[in-house]
Design a protein around this nucleic acid. Sequence first.
DNA 1: CGTTCGATTGAGGAAGATCAATTAATGTGG
DNA 2: CCACATTAATTGATCTTCCTCAATCGAACG
Lengths: 258, 258
Amino acid sequence: MLSTAAPQRTLPTAPSLAAGIPLSSDGDQRASRDVADMLKLLVDTLAPQRRVVHAGDVIYRAGERFGNLYVMNSGFFKLVTLSPDGREQVVSLKFRGDWLGFDGIAQGAYSCDAVAMDTGDIWVIRYDALLGACFRCPELLTVLHAAMSREIGRDRDSLMSVCTLPADARVAEFLRQWAQSLAQRGLRSDQIMLRMTRAEIGNYLGMTLETVSRALSKLARDKVIDFAEKGRRDIRIPNVQALATFVQRCLSPVPTLQ
Amino acid sequence: MLSTAAPQRTLPTAPSLAAGIPLSSDGDQRASRDVADMLKLLVDTLAPQRRVVHAGDVIYRAGERFGNLYVMNSGFFKLVTLSPDGREQVVSLKFRGDWLGFDGIAQGAYSCDAVAMDTGDIWVIRYDALLGACFRCPELLTVLHAAMSREIGRDRDSLMSVCTLPADARVAEFLRQWAQSLAQRGLRSDQIMLRMTRAEIGNYLGMTLETVSRALSKLARDKVIDFAEKGRRDIRIPNVQALATFVQRCLSPVPTLQ
DNA sequence: CGTTCGATTGAGGAAGATCAATTAATGTGG
DNA sequence: CCACATTAATTGATCTTCCTCAATCGAACG
């Protein structure tokens, strides 16, 4: 991990509108600092090329020759794989501080599409340049490996959710993870703007869009989430903990007394 | 990847009992060489400590302080994660040439249990020693990153299977992947010895043990697989391609005329 | 040889998929 | 700005797949 020696200033990305409720735990604040530290380190050592992206932009495609890694400074990405027989799967969602392109290292070609879901900016990092820089600055290597390791951990969490949770709980857990991801990056997490359709969410979670819709309706009915006035795309989460307890309630075979 | 300049001799682990049918494709043979090359490189540069393991041995546990990576020379491992609320999930299966422990880098502690499912031997590699060696031998870094990248790719393949395939197809695909893993390592892949119970397989694939059993029975009924005389734990796969076509048949909404 | 654990198979039920109709949001050209 | 077309979301009614429960069988082991 980052050896956070100097009390690095948090980048101005955390509008903590804390209205009494603590929006992020201590762990989240540390994670937020870690992300900021990593980004600063990358800027300082690599002066990466900056690239602005908009919703729909494809940063790399499956099969394309590998050469770059990308680090997200802002925005929101999905990674999509396509099987030979045409099945499509959203395999990962990425936020600020996440890296894109690790899948390409092994085979010399990317194995999925990286698609921007929102406006944002990412940093282009030539892989061989990065390796070179790692020799001059071992800290870079630490950061790189931590990022890859984290990605492996996240992928496993996804598998766990899909394999062990019923549909309702899976959707709740999805929202919880999303909120937590935002919190860990110093972004406000009490209101999340889903930039995915129900179909995309369902694909990611291994269920149909109707089931996603029903699950969200149930969460709203149970007051665990709230829809914004216009559009059912942004979701208010009054209390993240409520999502966690909802998941537990789905798991326990306790009669729901109604 | 490995710059396979010299025609490195394949390690004596590939008893190609080819009885006419090509047991492995050209791609598999290359992969097999790559694995052998990697293992040789590790021996030469790190002279890692060797450790013999037996079924049930736990190499590391979730929460344990991270320090070592492990490279499998032989045997078979499962990685198991446990959620805070007690859900257990087999998140990965590992074979010869695979690395164990990547999940520990990010957090400074392992996030799953690595359990041997069979007798085998693994090499213990201190992470900091590895990093040091990477500076003297950049090839090591390439190999390390390729291994992590491959792991990310595999995890995503798992997610894709679980999310997009019906139960029968998932079991077939599981066997196909297993056979392919063996072939890519120069091991015979026409006969695989499952060292997992139906319950473990089901857990890994996100279904119940009964469903696994029924799927295997169906595969046997359709002559896609064959059970050995004694015990239903080792499975003959007369033709790997048949597994792939079985998966496709499950996907296509073609009436099965019966 | 009985005990235990794993695997198989069947019957019934429940979660979620599919199909379909309706409503809400978004966009487009006049 | 409106009428219209288009896409996304919701909700209901069935239907299918898979889970659950249960009984039986086989293999391994003390």
